[in-house]
Design a protein around this nucleic acid. Structure first.
Ligand SMILES: [Mn+2]
Ligand SMILES: [Mn+2]
Ligand SMILES: [Zn+2]
Ligand SMILES: [Zn+2]
Lengths: 150, 150
DNA sequence: ATGAAATTGAAATTCATATTCAAATGACTA
DNA sequence: TAGTCATTTGAATATGAATTTCAATTTCAT
């Protein structure tokens, strides 16, 4: 059993909830995917693997995973919410490719520092932030050139 | 007539749409407010001023204002979309106070530069970005101290 | 095993946003 | 100016993601 699953079980236990087959199945498929998944994508992924779980339960379990700190909510400006694995992953920002939809995870200690400084200048106490850069990833950029687009 | 209104009229004209009382009223109240407004907030603001406009028309006009470049969409992780005045305002990021809901507009040329660098390192061609920092503004931070919170 | 409590999931609800369509308004022509 | 056609308006309806409801099922403690 992975550490992430252990942490999830611990959280469930502390909240006096029950460790059920659905919750564990959903958590495992989510963790294995390693992707930035919407509720519906995870629901379909479970169906593919012939794991039965209702949409409502997938919603609720992702919420639990989020509360437990195992998963994190990601809002990339789409209409639907996504979740990513947070446990074992350090903080990062996203390069979002508008060509192929990939999310590239990036980090810059310098940017983080400058954000702190910027906040200090305004007497602002930061607790979290979100930096998303939208554009074209390397392969999509090349693709466009090939096709002669601008 | 302000330059922003002029630009909006020009856009409407170019699209072979009509300059109507509703469109102008909505645009003017929006521009005067200078705030980060949701559709509903603007709709209520119009009602207060006894300007009649249906919700659908407010939606549609904000969309037009956005397309014209006079307004910009702002997604601050709430369930509802907001619009801000874009015309005459340069690019900026947001410090979002989770205490009082204020949006402080900030800018750091250094952060922008580092973002460019970060993208370049990944062969990524950026076209836009979004940086929001959530936390407590100066007055909300002081408030919390007074009350003895952590 | 028994009963109380928690969980599940199909269906209903909510809420923001988008669309529909009949009536109103505006533009244009004769 | 009156007539005609096109656009706009806004109340009502539709949509779609997220949440809630509640009866049936499952789990846990005894
Ligand atoms: Mn990520
Ligand atoms: Mn702003
Ligand atoms: Zn790509
Ligand atoms: Zn504040």
């Amino acid at each position: 059993m992975t550490k992430a699953i252990k942490k999830f079980r611990k959280y469930i236990d502390e909240k006096n909830l029950q460790i059920t087959r659905q919750r564990m199945d959903i958590a495992e498929v989510f963790l294995q995917s390693g992707r930035h998944l919407s509720v519906d994508e995870l629901y379909e992924l479970l169906k593919e693997r012939e794991i039965s779980a209702g949409r409502a339960t997938v919603f609720r379990t992702l919420k639990l995973l989020n509360e437990s700190g195992v998963a994190g909510e990601v809002d990339l400006g789409e209409k639907t919410r996504r979740y990513e694995v947070k446990f074992g992953n350090t903080h990062h920002d996203h390069l979002v490719c508008t060509g192929c939809g990939r999310y590239i995870e990036v980090y810059s200690g310098q940017i983080e520092e400058m954000q702190e400084k910027l906040c200090a200048e305004h007497g602002f106490k930061p607790s979290s932030h979100r930096l998303d850069i939208f554009g074209l990833c390397r392969s999509c950029g090349i693709e466009k050139k090939k096709k002669g687009y601008r």
